[in-house]
């Protein structure tokens, strides 16, 4: 794959990439801590992954293989555009196979296949501050992080149980990283939270509009907050995938007609395709 010679490798200039790498290193050194960085204007709108794309640009090398997923799918607009972007500005190989990728940029999902030490998972983060809806003052949230003063987050969970009878937060479920920092896992479903715990792959989080980077190094403890008598439960639709029959993957509900017809399919398209292929091979 040849890259467009009109751009520096991976779009950003070298000093910007160094600035982002410094933020990433600091983030890795303090797991879960939000590090401010000078986010650049990127050729896509805020909310489409400007933070993730900058982190990817800073860590990707010519030998890397990039996979981009949006809500688990490889074939959605955002995923296709970002893959095309890096093919053009970095000339890197891209893939839809989780197993073959070395860098995976994701919006709102963690792949079903367990990741390895040779992979980096880059999350696109709309709002890095987990206390954002509870405490409006950023200066105060910073102080709360500094002092590990996280009682307020439990007040939110308490209110959930008092109102709904269970913790009703089904995505963006707050986690404690390394027993110290409260972290927003970006809006992944709570179903994916357990995959973050002691994951062998490096996890990097980029928030472009909010100009924050944070990280979870490999094999770091990531614990979902809960109560002793209301333990954390990963939630998934109680169905099997219509296409591959999986009963253990995260499902999307898809409407099929205007008369109430609906099916449940795996949100991770690569996982689903792999299972369908192996089932056909077995037949």
């Amino acid at each position: 794959m040849t890259r467009d010679p009109g751009y520096n490798f991976a779009y950003l200039d070298e000093s910007t990439k160094r600035m982002i790498r410094r933020a990433i290193l600091k983030g890795v050194a303090i797991p879960g801590h939000q590090v401010p960085f000078g986010a650049r204007e990127m050729p896509l709108p805020y909310g489409w992954g400007t933070g993730g794309i900058q982190v990817t640009a800073a860590v990707i090398g010519p030998a890397d293989v990039l996979k981009v997923i949006d809500q688990g799918a490889d074939d959605t607009t955002n995923a296709v555009s970002i893959r095309a972007f890096f093919r053009r500005v970095a000339g890197v190989a891209t893939t839809e196979r989780t197993a073959e990728a070395t860098v995976i940029q994701t919006r709102h999902r963690i792949p079903e296949r367990a990741l390895t030490e040779n992979q980096i998972l880059v999350y696109q983060v709309p709002m890095p501050e987990p206390l954002f809806r509870l405490e409006a003052r950023i200066a105060e949230t910073k102080r709360m992080h500094a002092l590990a003063d996280y009682g307020l987050m439990h007040v939110k969970l308490y209110e959930d149980i008092a109102r709904h009878g269970h913790i009703a937060t089904s995505y963006n479920y707050p986690v404690m990283v390394n027993g110290r920092y409260l972290m927003s896992p970006s809006p992944i479903p709570a179903f994916d939270n357990p995959k973050m715990d002691r994951m062998p792959a490096l996890q990097l989080f980029g928030a472009g509009r909010e100009k924050r980077i944070y990280a979870v190094p490999p094999y770091t403890s990531v614990r979902s907050l809960d109560f002793e008598d209301h333990p954390f439960r990963p939630i998934r639709a109680p169905h099997a995938c219509t296409l591959c029959g999986a009963r253990d993957s995260y499902l999307d509900e898809v409407l099929t007609d205007d008369r109430g017809g609906r099916i449940f399919v795996c949100s991770d398209t690569d996982h689903c395709a792999e299972r369908q292929a192996s089932r056909e091979a077995a037949e």
Binding site: D149, G151, L152, H154, V155, Y158, E159, I161, A162, R163, D226, F227, E228, D229, H230
Partner: peptide, 23 residues
């Protein structure tokens, strides 16, 4: 935040993690 949450906040801030007891 509900009355119960208001009273429970200080308990949770000092480490109470049992919903039933807090309530």
């Amino acid at each position: 935040v509900s009355a119960g949450g208001n009273i429970g906040e200080r308990l949770m801030a000092v480490g109470a993690r049992h919903y039933g007891n807090i309530r």
